Simulated scan of single mutants.
Amino acid sequence: MDRRLTLVPAPALGPAVLTDVWPAVRAALDGGAPLSVVPADPGPAARARAVLRPDLPLEDGADLVVLTSGSTGDGRGVLLPAAALRASATATLDRLGGPGGWLLALPVSAVAGLQVLVRSALAGAPPAVLAPGERLADALPRVPGDRRYAALVPTQLRRLLDTEPGALRALDAVLVGGAATDPALLARARAEGVGVVTTYGMSETAGGCVYDGVPLDGVGVRVADRGVELTGPQLALGYRLDPAATAEAFVDGWFRTRDAGTLVGGRLQVHGRLDDVLVSGGVNVAPQAVEAALREHPAVDDAVVAGRPDPEWGHRVVAAVVPSPGAEPQLADLRPWVAERLGAPAAPKELLLVDAVPVLHTGKPDRRSVTRLFEGA
């Protein structure tokens, strides 16, 4: 009998996550109906349906299907068996010091938020949900258990360090991932006494599988010509209805991430997506490095960098910047700041000031939206 995929709309963070999504995820982990948690907004929901095709039979072995961020298209459906999600969650809890209660502050349509539900299921208690606009300090009393954990993206960590550092310190561990985390932000968090742990992973690895550069138990890491490659019991089966992409990415039990990285003393250092590298004036420019340099400027609170086609330079580096409170950063000031640190080709040639950086439903920077912002401007 064909198994069919059920699409479960993910409401905005709030009580409905626990009433609508939490029971369905727990049932899928226990062998119930396979599902995919998808954004509830009509546009993203329609794109998810087009990619996931719930009208067609589901591939054997898959229990949950996670839609990737779609940073280079409409995304792919990643086929995850319950065993992979459980292996990832178990290794995470072992690394953090044992089961505990979780604070959910990320969308459950992305693997990072979904894994908070999985880890909570292993711990035997639903997470506390941080509602939009709610203070972290007000949500903490609802986190169950003696140990308390949370998962955040770097932008959330930065904002909470500005507003509620004491509440962050009350957590036993704060996982930070989904995008590159600036060393300066990590240093600040640790200086504030926050138990921050950087995570590296993706939907294809059932979430983070390398913590503070060190693989979780059972995870293998190697760096090849194609970039960082990962193996272990947390790996996905492949991509929904895309055998060609599956064969290209999953080879002999290893997943090819397409991330640039190096192994130094057994620790993995990730330098960004190979696909994201911009070529400006014949020089490779990593957007993540430019973003990190911009955030070090006192007038910049946050930044996201993209490339626009340029007949002379190949790529024109452009930056959307969130000003620091009371500041008004100028391109004339930011260009030499970046050039001094990364070289002239990395210096942005265009600047837009924005209230917040555009992000995908996963919390990752949305570089395509940045490009469209500049085209509109």
Rank of each mutant, 00 (worst) to 15 (best):
E296K: 01
V214E: 15
E59Q: 13
E328A: 14
A137R: 15
P243Y: 10
R226L: 00
D182V: 02
P365N: 02
P144C: 12
R47I: 00
L96A: 04
P15I: 00
R256M: 01
V279N: 12
T246P: 06
P9A: 06
R367N: 05
R49K: 09
L93N: 02
P309K: 13
Y149Q: 10
G73M: 01
G166N: 06
A91E: 04
R256P: 01
V338I: 09
Q330N: 06
W313C: 10
A249K: 11
A179L: 04
D302E: 13
G75C: 00
P126C: 05
V17N: 05
L56I: 02
A150Y: 11
G213E: 07
T371Y: 15
H361G: 07
E134I: 04
E350K: 09
P215S: 07
T181L: 13
V65L: 11
L18F: 11
T68N: 04
E229D: 04
V129P: 04
P348E: 08
A289C: 08
G97F: 12
R76T: 02
A180T: 06
G218D: 05
L331F: 07
V214P: 05
A244R: 13
E350L: 10
A299L: 07
V51E: 04
M202D: 01
Q288H: 13
V228E: 08
A377W: 15
G31I: 11
L130H: 08
E229H: 05
V277S: 03
E375I: 06
A10V: 05
E134P: 05
P141F: 13
Q269K: 15
V174L: 05
V21C: 07
V322N: 04
L7E: 03
P325W: 12
V143S: 08
R147C: 03
P54C: 01
T199M: 05
G363L: 04
G201K: 13
A84N: 11
E229S: 02
V17G: 02
